[in-house]
Design a binder for these strands. Structure first.
Lengths: 358, 358
DNA sequence: GAGGCCCATGTTTGCGTAAACATCGCGGCG
DNA sequence: CGCCGCGATGTTTACGCAAACATGGGCCTC
C-alpha cells in the first residue's frame, strides 16, 4: 500500500514531469517499471541481460519497453558505471589514405567491440593545436585515445591527459613510451629495394615523404640500409610532401638523369605524379625507369602503367589499435612496445629489368 | 553541526571512496569545493563561467581545480543537462573521397561549435546494417545525426530513432522528408556537358555511378537533360561503380567507338581508369577524346593528362550540415528542404575540341 | 515437519552536476 | 534609522541508472 500511495504523486504521469534539458520525452526505467508492474531494478536487470529474471516477467518488461519506446540513457549509464564505452581518435587531417583507412578500421573494430568512436580532428599539426584537441578530449566522454600522428607533436599535451585514459599511437617511434601499432615500414622498404635490385638495377633512387613524418623517415632509413647492405651506392635522398604534385616536381628533375633507372616512391600519390612527369619527358615506365610505390591505394592498379607497390594492411593496424587499447584499459598488459604489421609486395607493370646498357 | 557531523564520514578523504567503475581517481566538484572552502555550487558556477562570483573566490576555486586536476565529468553533465554536445555521423564506408572530405569538414565545423563527432560506420549498405547502426546510435550519446548516405536505406530504420534526435542528410533526394545538404549535382553536370559542347563536340557520353546512388542518378539525369536541351542525341548511359577499375573496363569498350569524342565521367577515380584504357587503346586524350571528371580530388591535377573536372566544395557541405542540424536542434526552423552547394568547373588538359572530321 | 537456503524481486542509495530555491550581509534610500 | 533590494554564496533536489542490500516465499534436506 505504500507503493500504491506513492505512485500517483511521486512518479505518476499526472505530474507532467518538467524534463529540463532535453526536448523530446524519453521514457525512463521508472516509466517502464510502472507500466510493467515491476520495480525499476527489474527493468535494469532485463535491460542488461542479467540472469535471475523469470521469463514471464522478462516478457512483460520487454513489452512495456517496446510500448514506451524505452532507450537506456547513456549519460546516466556512463555516470553510474564510470565508463563511456567510447574511444577517441585524434588525427591530423583525413587527407592521407593511410589515416582514413586506419580510422575506418578502428571504427569498425570498435563497433564490433561495442565501443563508439569519437573523432578529434586537428586542423594544423602544431603543438598548440594538438594540445587544444587533447583539452577538448579531456572533457569529452572517452575511455581511451588512439593517436594517428607522429607523437612528438603530442608530448607537451600528454601532461594534460587524465591519468586513466589509455593511449595507443600509430605512426611514431615512441614505442618506449607508448604502445605503438604500425605498418612494418622498414620491411616494406627493404622488399621494394630488393625487388628492384633483383630485377637487375644497379641502384635505387628514393622519393621520400616530408621531414616530420616518422613513416617517411623509417622508409628512407630502410631504403638506405638495404642499398648499403647490398653493396650499392645510395643516390641522394629526394623529398616530397606526399602529394601527387610534389611527386610530379621531383619526377621532372629525375627524368633528366639518364642514370636513374629505378625509383622507390614513399607513397602511391607521389608515384602518380612521378609517372606523369616521366611520361611527359618521354621516359617510358617500366622500359626506361621502374617505379614502385607504397600503400597500394585502390587506384594504383589503374595508374599508367598499373603501379607495383607495397600493400599496407590498414584494417589490421586499426584492429590491433583497438585490441591493444582495450587490453590496456582492462590492465591486461601490453603497456608499451611496438607492434608491426607486415606489408605485401604487389607486382604490377611499373617495374621491369633496366634497359640493357650493353 | 549537521554538516560538521556528516563531512568526515560521507565525503571526507579518510574513507577512501570506493569509485566503482572508473580506474583512475578523478576529482569531483565536491573535492574542489572542499579544498577551496566553498560550496560545490560555486565550483559549478566557476566551471560554467557564470557571473556573480567574486574575483577572489573565483581565483581560489580555479587554484583548487588546478591542484586537483579537476575535469568536469561529462556523463554527469550530460545527465543533468539532457544533452551531450555530440553529433553522430553515420556513413557507408570511408572509401569514397566525397564521404571522407565531408566527414572531415563536419568534424571541423562541429569542433568549432563545441560539438564532438561520433562516427558510425556501416559495413554493408543494407537496410539491416543501417538499422543496426541506428540502434547502436540510439543508445549512444548523441543529440543529432548526420547521414552521409542515400536515404532510402534508412527509411525503415528511422522509426527507431528517438523523436528528438534531429537528422540532416547528404546525398539524397529526400528533401521533402529531411533536411538535405548536397552538392549541386545537376548544375555541375550541366556545366560539364556545356563545356564539352562548347568545345564543338557533337554529343557527350556519360559514365555514371552505380544504380543505388542518388548522386549518380542526379548527374546522369542532368547530363541527359542538358543534351536534350541543346538538341543533341544522348548516347546510351554507361554505368560504373565509382572505382577506377570500373572506369577502365568501360574505357575499353568506349575506346572501340570511333564516334565517341567526349566523355563526362561521374567521378575522378573512374576517369582515371578510363584514361588508362584510352591510352592503352591508343586513343589520345584530349586530341581524340575529351574526358571530364567530377569531384576534383587532389590527384586529378596529376593524371595523364591533368583532368578537367568539377570541383566540389565538401568543406561547405560539411559546414552547412552542422549548421543546419544545430539550427534544427535549437528549433530555429529549416526543418526540411534541400540546400545546394555549387560546383566549379576546373579546366585542365583532358578536354579539347574534337578531332576535325572534315 | 522444521530449518535453512536460494531464487526472484523490491528498496535504498549514490554516481557528479546544476537548476531552483534559501540565506546572509551590506549599502542605499525614504 | 530601519527597511528593501540585490549581489554573493550555500542548500536541496533530481537527472536515470545499477550496485548493494533487503525481503519473502517455495523447496530441499534431515
Amino acid at each position: 500500500m505504500d507503493t500504491a500511495d506513492r505512485t500517483p504523486s511521486v512518479t505518476g504521469g499526472g505530474r507532467g514531469r518538467p524534463r529540463a534539458g532535453a526536448r523530446g520525452q524519453t521514457a525512463s526505467m521508472a516509466d517502464v517499471a510502472r507500466l510493467a508492474g515491476v520495480s525499476s531494478q527489474t527493468v535494469s536487470r532485463v535491460s542488461n541481460g542479467y540472469a535471475g529474471v523469470t521469463e514471464e516477467t522478462r516478457q512483460q518488461v520487454l513489452a512495456a519497453m517496446k510500448e514506451l519506446g524505452y532507450r537506456p540513457n547513456s549519460a546516466a549509464r556512463a555516470l553510474k558505471r564510470g565508463e563511456f564505452r567510447t574511444i577517441g581518435v585524434i588525427t591530423f587531417s583525413l587527407s592521407t589514405t593511410g589515416n582514413v583507412r586506419t580510422l575506418e578500421a578502428i571504427a569498425n573494430s570498435a563497433a564490433h567491440e561495442g565501443y563508439a568512436v569519437t573523432l578529434l580532428p586537428v586542423a594544423v599539426p602544431t603543438q598548440d593545436e594538438v594540445r587544444g584537441a587533447f583539452t577538448r578530449l579531456e572533457e569529452l566522454a572517452v575511455d581511451a585515445v588512439i593517436v594517428i600522428m607522429e607523437v612528438h607533436l603530442l608530448d607537451a599535451a600528454t601532461i594534460a591527459l587524465p591519468p586513466h585514459v589509455q593511449v595507443v599511437v600509430v605512426d611514431s617511434d615512441a614505442g618506449d613510451r607508448y604502445n605503438v601499432v604500425d605498418t612494418d615500414q622498414a620491411g616494406g622498404s627493404r622488399a621494394a629495394v630488393r625487388h628492384l635490385l633483383g630485377l637487375g638495377h644497379g641502384t635505387v633512387w628514393h622519393l621520400g615523404g616530408p621531414e616530420g613524418s616518422f613513416a617517411a623517415q623509417r622508409r628512407a632509413d630502410a631504403w638506405h640500409a638495404a642499398l648499403v647492405e647490398a653493396g650499392r651506392t645510395p643516390p641522394p635522398l629526394l623529398r616530397g610532401d606526399w602529394s601527387a604534385e610534389s611527386g610530379y616536381r621531383t619526377g621532372l628533375e629525375l627524368a633528366a638523369r639518364e642514370d636513374c633507372t629505378a625509383v622507390f616512391v614513399a607513397n602511391d600519390q607521389m608515384a602518380l605524379g612521378l609517372l606523369r612527369a616521366l611520361h611527359e619527358r618521354g621516359r617510358r615506365v617500366p622500359e626506361d625507369v621502374s617505379v614502385i610505390g607504397f600503400d597500394d591505394i585502390p587506384e594504383a592498379s589503374s595508374f599508367l602503367p598499373p603501379l607495383t607497390t607495397l600493400h599496407q594492411d590498414f584494417a589490421e593496424v586499426g584492429r590491433l589499435c583497438v585490441k591493444n587499447v582495450l587490453r590496456k584499459m582492462r590492465h591486461e598488459g601490453a603497456e608499451r612496445g611496438t607492434t608491426l604489421v607486415p606489408t605485401r609486395l604487389v607486382v604490377r607493370e611499373s617495374t621491369a629489368p633496366p634497359p640493357s646498357q650493353a
